[in-house]
């Protein structure tokens, strides 16, 4: 009898210890995020003002703002979206609605997974060899945008496919039974229903694009440009690359530090906003559908 009680006690103690430990680790994760965020926010918040956001760097990067980098990142987002959004969504549609189940689908899915696993520096290497050299785009917005577009393609494809998969076949059958063609069904019924999740995926892919450095190192990023890019074959400055540059090079690191903190904070805010937007979109559409 004693043994059983002891066993029960021990059993519950182990559970307490184990669950206590996993809780502790989870709290630690939150702690790490809080430390990183608050460090950058505290150091960077004093730097950010309208002038910082709206002027170009001056005096060898030690003064002035990061306006060209913000604009550059915006261009890159736009450029990659122009390419990756339609292609990604269409690819997702093909996989869920058209692709023959079995080998073809498995093959495409594996390839998409493989693409998403390729390190970003390899994308950079490929972008330089293919877009910059082979297609002769030079280091330019086009080359950078396309490289970034390829990078976020798997994410868009996967979210689109999942979004469409979640829609029950009865809707498709109902629509077809009413005499709609497959394409009409797709555009009138399936896509509107899948939209919330697709849009969320798109927004998250924008987040990915805006933070990547390695793919743009050799395809489009510029250290400093005296004026904004005037064409798609110009180089651009971009936020993540700008942070890298002012954190590691330049004449006067001490004077550059505040700008580095400011740039890091702007990047973090961008990521926060994008995540928030994704959540809001998801909730808004979910409510609307109900």
């Amino acid at each position: 009898m004693d043994d059983t009680i002891q066993y029960e006690l021990k059993k519950n103690l182990t559970q307490k210890v184990a669950f206590g430990a996993v809780t502790l680790f989870s709290v630690a994760i939150v702690g790490i995020l809080v430390v990183i965020l608050s460090f950058i926010i505290i150091k960077g918040v004093g730097v950010i003002n309208w002038e910082f956001l709206s002027t170009a760097p001056t005096d060898g990067m030690t003064k002035g703002g990061i306006f060209p980098a913000i604009v550059g990142t915006f261009y890159l987002i736009l450029g990659s979206a122009l390419f990756a959004f339609p292609v990604g969504i269409m690819s997702g549609i093909y996989m869920n609605e058209y692709a023959p189940k079995g080998f073809v689908l498995r093959f495409i899915r594996t390839m998409t997974n493989n693409l998403s696993g390729i390190p970003s520096i390899v994308f950079g290497l490929f972008g330089m060899a293919f877009f910059v050299k082979q297609l002769n785009f030079g280091t330019s917005i086009v080359a950078g945008s396309l490289t970034l577009g390829l990078l976020c393609l798997p994410l868009i494809i996967r979210t689109t496919e999942e979004a469409l998969k979640a829609i029950p076949d009865s809707y498709r059958e109902g629509s077809r039974a009413l005499g709609a063609t497959k394409l009409q069904t797709l555009f009138r019924v399936i896509l509107p229903m899948g939209m919330p999740n697709i849009v969320t995926g798109l927004i998250l892919s924008v987040g990915r694009v805006s933070g990547e450095t390695a793919p743009i190192l050799f395809t489009c990023a510029a250290f400093f440009l005296p004026q904004l890019p005037t064409g798609i074959f110009d180089q651009v400055m971009a936020l993540p690359y700008h942070l890298y540059v002012i954190a590691t090079s330049g004449g006067d690191l001490e004077a550059q530090r505040p700008i580095a903190y400011g740039t890091a904070l702007v990047l973090i805010i961008l990521v926060l906003l994008i995540n928030l937007l994704a959540t809001v979109v998801r909730r808004y559409f979910a409510k609307k559908l109900k």
Binding site: F223, P229, T230, G231, I232, F233, D234, G251
Partner: peptide
């Protein structure tokens, strides 16, 4: 046109060494 415009404005470009850059 955008691309051509860009070419016309870019009267001269200089590129290279980070040492000589500043």
């Amino acid at each position: 046109t955008v691309a051509l415009f860009a070419q016309a404005i870019m009267a001269q470009s200089i590129k290279g060494s980070d040492t000589a850059l500043p």
